[in-house]
Computed example of a mutant assay.
Amino acid sequence: MKNTISVKQFQFFPFHLVTPSPWPILVSFSLLTLTTGAVSYIHGYYLGGYILSLGFIITTLGMSLWLRDIITEGTLLGDHTKEVVVGLVYGIVLFIVSEVFAFFSIFWAFFHSSLSPAIELGGQWPPLGIEPLNPFAIPLLNTLLLLSSGATITFAHHGLLASKRGAAILGTLLTIILALIFTGLQAFEYAQSSITIADSVYGSAFFCSTGLHGLHVIVGTIFITVGFFRIINYHLTNTHHQGYEAGIYYWHFVDVVWLFLFVAIYVWGGTGL
Score class of each variant (00 low, 15 high):
46 Y>L: 06
112 H>Y: 15
123 G>H: 07
36 T>D: 07
74 G>I: 01
68 R>P: 03
124 Q>D: 04
72 T>C: 12
72 T>G: 09
82 K>M: 14
65 L>I: 06
130 I>M: 05
112 H>W: 14
86 V>I: 14
34 L>C: 05
83 E>A: 15
97 V>N: 08
126 P>S: 06
60 T>S: 13
81 T>Y: 06
102 A>S: 13
119 I>E: 15
61 L>A: 14
112 H>T: 15
67 L>V: 11
95 F>R: 04
72 T>Y: 11
127 P>Y: 00
119 I>M: 14
48 G>E: 05
54 L>M: 02
43 H>E: 13
36 T>N: 08
64 S>Q: 11
94 L>C: 12
92 I>D: 00
122 G>P: 01
65 L>G: 00
112 H>C: 15
118 A>R: 15
63 M>H: 04
56 F>W: 10
70 I>V: 12
120 E>W: 13
112 H>D: 15
70 I>L: 11
68 R>T: 14
130 I>S: 07
54 L>C: 08
93 V>F: 08
80 H>F: 15
119 I>W: 05
111 F>H: 07
50 Y>M: 14
58 I>D: 03
119 I>C: 10
128 L>P: 10
69 D>N: 15
43 H>M: 11
80 H>M: 12
47 L>N: 13
54 L>T: 04
124 Q>K: 13
130 I>K: 06
86 V>C: 11
51 I>V: 12
33 T>Y: 04
92 I>S: 04
88 L>Q: 05
84 V>N: 05
76 L>Q: 13
132 P>L: 06
88 L>F: 12
83 E>R: 08
79 D>E: 15
96 I>T: 03
130 I>P: 00
103 F>K: 02
114 S>P: 02
133 L>M: 07
82 K>F: 12
109 A>G: 11
81 T>N: 05
51 I>H: 00
103 F>D: 01
103 F>Q: 04
80 H>W: 09
75 T>Q: 12
114 S>R: 00
115 L>W: 11
131 E>K: 11
48 G>S: 03
54 L>G: 00
79 D>S: 11
51 I>C: 01
120 E>D: 11
129 G>W: 10
82 K>E: 07
55 G>D: 02
59 T>D: 08
34 L>E: 01
55 G>R: 00
62 G>T: 01
64 S>V: 10
44 G>K: 07
64 S>I: 10
125 W>L: 03
49 G>N: 00
104 F>N: 12
65 L>P: 03
50 Y>L: 07
79 D>Q: 13
35 T>R: 06
68 R>F: 09
86 V>P: 02
92 I>A: 01
113 S>V: 09
131 E>A: 14
76 L>S: 12
59 T>V: 08
105 S>H: 10
116 S>M: 15
127 P>T: 02
67 L>Q: 13
51 I>Q: 02
100 V>G: 07
110 F>K: 00
91 G>I: 04
46 Y>A: 01
103 F>M: 04
101 F>A: 10
45 Y>C: 11
102 A>F: 15
